[in-house]
Design a protein around this nucleic acid. Structure first.
Ligand SMILES: [Zn+2]
Ligand SMILES: [Zn+2]
Ligand SMILES: [Zn+2]
Ligand SMILES: [Zn+2]
Lengths: 159, 159
DNA sequence: ATCATATTGATATGTTATAACATACTTGAT
DNA sequence: ATCAAGTATGTTATAACATATCAATATGAT
């Protein structure tokens, strides 16, 4: 299922599963899954939406896990670098990764109605961009692919 | 040539040509190509790099075309809506469109060394993302495709 | 001329992100 | 046990990006 986020699912299990995966991943890689980092990921996982750094910070603050911007940004940096979360550039916001895999080039479907973000598990089609890059001798290190629009349920709601 | 920006070319002619095109486009569409707007586009065209709104503003200010943020943002909004410029989401910056065509889904190659941005003139490859979107019933309205990496000349420079 | 609309001018504020520096906690070597 | 090195946090301040609002002016249509 490529757009899980738009579908009904056992979300509690979904979160628990992702947290377990994150814990194992960090253990394997020798990364420290500290309380702030773990809770930050959990907060992102609760939603299948992108949260701004300051949204995350507000929640952390309520739980006395920190109150200053760097707290949120450090946690987000860690999660992004660990591959456990992604930044949605078009929103300047962050979303938990729904992938189990390791290195991947995510592509996102972002609903402007409900802000839900689905991560397409496309192993990525080497599209024309790669061809163009190769032709120009350009070496791609990171690719941002974000599609904005309306999810099925928001299409109904709208008019 | 899809990655013109990385190649040597007659840039003065390149700018003049784009300005002429913009003037004609606005005339056709009944859009007002005012001095601030025209000069803003020209400033973007000088570089083939993405400029931040405040970089543009600084230049406009030097020329007494305005000194407050809204001046730059209004000009950029106009240019983006008119299809004469694009926003690079990954940089929160703006680049002049190098396309003549009308409606297009641009894809960018962004050099992290020299900040040059090339707009690939892909007429759009319906990649896996579109397939995934269709499968999920998601209606795509706008797509951001931005590849970051190193241009040929910066690859040499970097050790 | 009058009215509506679009553009500009100006001030203030909101939002996102990082710099800079100090402190505490781990870890591994002596 | 002690130390040094590295990693993680705490804290303050500020940089960088973006918009809200309202008044003034210009433009164009009736
Ligand atoms: Zn879920
Ligand atoms: Zn939706
Ligand atoms: Zn040029
Ligand atoms: Zn370069």
């Amino acid at each position: 299922m490529t757009a899980l986020s738009f579908c009904a699912h056992d979300h509690a299990a979904c979160v628990a599963d992702r947290m377990r995966h994150a814990r194992e991943h960090c253990a394997r890689e020798g990364l420290k899954f500290t309380p702030v980092r773990a809770r930050s990921l959990e907060i992102l996982l609760q939603e299948h939406r992108a949260l701004g750094a300051y949204d995350l910070l507000a929640q952390l603050s309520r739980e006395n896990l920190g109150s200053q911007p760097p707290v949120a940004y450090r946690a987000l940096d860690f999660l992004v670098k660990a591959g456990l979360a992604h930044k949605i550039e078009a929103l300047n916001a962050y979303v938990a990764c729904t992938h189990s895999g390791t290195d991947h080039t995510p592509a996102f479907l972002i609903c402007r109605g409900c802000n839900v973000v689905a991560e397409a598990d496309t192993a990525l089609s080497p599209g024309r961009l790669d061809v163009a890059a190769a032709a120009a001798g350009f070496e791609i290190e990171h690719t941002v692919i974000e599609a904005q629009g309306l999810c099925p349920s928001c299409q109904e709601t709208a008019t």
